[in-house]
């Protein structure tokens, strides 16, 4: 009897994650969808006019901004993140793993405001002085976000590399391949879907980041034309204006959240599908 009760209680608690997801989705959509309907989905997404006080809500520049900084972040994040993962799993003596792995995890633990702050005091002046423009830019955001997405990419790729059977590596080396040939022709290939999942989740991290981007992106409302232009992302749009918004304006910010939510969910689903396929493939092996 008591056991039965415990079972039921645990089951209910176990559903809290999915329940929270449902409630979050419901509330974000409930707040945001009416204004999208009012403005029209096409205008909302493709109009460049964001004048909340005049009732004009077009988030096209922010969508472009989010995509631009995310793309830039991925260039840096993927290169550094994969390099760390390769070194950690292939070339690194055990003793060094004990240093590098916690360090990368620590990188994930540093508050995003600290990243943003360093971006402002170091990166932005450097870009302004050497490359021109206001410094607050797509480039600065990309670099900051790239470093921030790196730990996600590294840790998931490390898992993917470690899932590759040892025998693949040994087999390849036994056939006379060098360590690097093995890594790049055998291991990277076998872990491909895991790496894709890692990159996609890293993208999710970058596109969803808020505080750091606000600090270094400049937040202007124009569509950026170069890496050195300032930019506003979906996330910073919400965080910047939430404090003083009301009525339709507030709803439009929730609607911005809806778009962001949809993008993230699409990325998550792709990552989940890709990694699930990997699991299935792994099980068949």
């Amino acid at each position: 009897m008591k056991e039965k009760a415990i079972h039921v209680v645990l089951m209910l608690l176990a559903f809290s994650a999915i329940a929270a997801l449902a409630v979050i989705t419901a509330f974000i959509f409930k707040e945001g969808v009416p204004i999208i309907a009012k403005v029209g989905i096409k205008d909302f997404i493709f109009s460049s006019d964001w004048y909340p006080l005049e009732g004009q809500f077009g988030i096209f520049p922010m969508i472009v901004g989010s995509l631009a900084v995310t793309a830039g972040a991925m260039v840096l994040g993927v290169v550094l993140g994969l390099a760390c993962a390769v070194v950690l799993t292939q070339f690194c003596p055990q003793g060094m793993v004990a240093v590098i792995k916690p360090s990368v995890e620590l990188l994930a633990g540093i508050p995003s405001v600290v990243y943003g702050f360093l971006g402002v005091v170091i990166l932005v002046p450097l870009i302004r002085d050497y490359l021109g423009g206001p410094g607050l830019s797509v480039l600065a955001s990309s670099i900051v976000l790239g470093v921030m997405a790196l730990p996600t990419i590294t840790s998931i790729s490390v898992d993917a590399f470690q899932a590759v059977p040892r025998s693949y590596r040994e087999g390849s080396i036994a056939l006379g391949a060098t360590e690097w040939q093995t890594t790049h022709r055998v291991i990277l290939k076998a872990a491909r879907s895991g790496i894709v999942a890692a990159i996609i989740l890293g993208m999710g991290r970058a596109i969803g980041e808020t505080m750091a981007v606000i600090m270094v992106a400049g937040n202007t409302l124009d569509v950026p034309h170069s890496l050195l232009d300032p930019v506003r992302t979906l996330t910073s749009n919400i965080a910047l204006e939430m404090g003083y918004s009301a009525g339709d304006h507030r709803q439009a910010l929730f609607a911005t959240g809806v778009i962001l939510f949809v993008i993230i969910m699409i990325l998550n689903s792709i990552a989940l599908t890709v990694s699930r396929r990997r699991v299935r493939k792994g099980a068949a092996r």
């Binding site: 176990a14 929270a20 409630v23 979050i24 969803g208 996330t235 959240g257 993230i264």
Partner: peptide, 22 residues
């Protein structure tokens, strides 16, 4: 349940903020 947890893990903090706010 796992799907719920995985999705929750991917949601950006600003969305949590919006949700918590409303």
């Amino acid at each position: 349940i796992r799907f719920g947890a995985d999705c929750l893990a991917g949601i950006p903090s600003i969305i949590f903020g919006l949700f918590g706010f409303v």
